[in-house]
Amino acid sequence: MKKKRDYTAFNSNLIRRPIKRCVWLFLLPTFAAFCIGFLYPFAKGLFLSFCKYITTRNWQWVGIDNYIKAIKDPSFLHAFWYTALFAIVSLIFINLLAFMIAYALTQGIKGSNLFRTVFFMPNLIGGIVLGYIWSLIFDGILTKFGTSLLLETKYGFWGLIILMCWQQVGYMMIIYIAGLQSVPESLHEAAKIDGASKWQTLIHVTLPNMMPSITICTFLTLTNSFKLFDQNLALTDGRPFQMVNGQTIKTTEMLALNIVNSFNENLTNRGVGQAKAVIFFVLVAAIGLIQLRATRSKEVQQ
């Protein structure tokens, strides 16, 4: 039977055309929210990074002074290198662990789903809460040895690495599991017939086919580490400190925390904090883009 055309159906042109014409109306709320919540603050922030101000209404133009001060600030430089080191170490640990667990959990062992859920759960807890809980755990152990998380930089560093691994491995694991499952079974069979060992299959067949997952995971861990704030604040808040030439260096302070601190600590110097934030934005954006491009080029078309 020939299907009768129903002009009053929802997807008919009669209904669709007026809706289509109103496209701007549908876009407007989101666009307005984007402007109010992102574009305007960003533009104003950029502008204020060239000003001296306490309240944002009363500003005074100072040019690139703030940027010079920011770059010369030893605590900012320390925070930068510390963050870079942290990002690299956590990138390696999180991705290795996540991949290993994902691989183990796709071998068809009993209770895989339960394990996946359990490993994923830490990701649902907020960073501040995690930071305080882990600081209690670490200090509980360290005070037995007459020391504390807040007394040595290395404890603060590895403490944060452990915390971040615990929190993020589960999330990355889910992405890797999806990646592992998307590798076509026929490729594995072909490799088996060709006499490849399990290890060779993993390196030459599975991994190249998983490049999209690896891209997204490295991208996420790298930017997450660079932007890390709440865990850093709650775990050590930059302690221990070091006095260098009369300047206080907070040895476990990362970039985001350094920016917030310099913004709040000294009200006459808020512009410098703002300048640091702009530098930070450019940095994170650049790293993200470079990294994305580098891994994309290795992807294999299936």
């Binding site: 007459g146 020391t147 504390s148 807040l150 007394l151 040595e152 302690r239 221990p240 400190f241």
Partner: peptide, 11 residues
């Protein structure tokens, strides 16, 4: 506070 903490812990 940080310096006091180091001193108090004997570090």
């Amino acid at each position: 506070v940080d310096a006091l903490a180091q001193y108090t812990a004997g570090k």
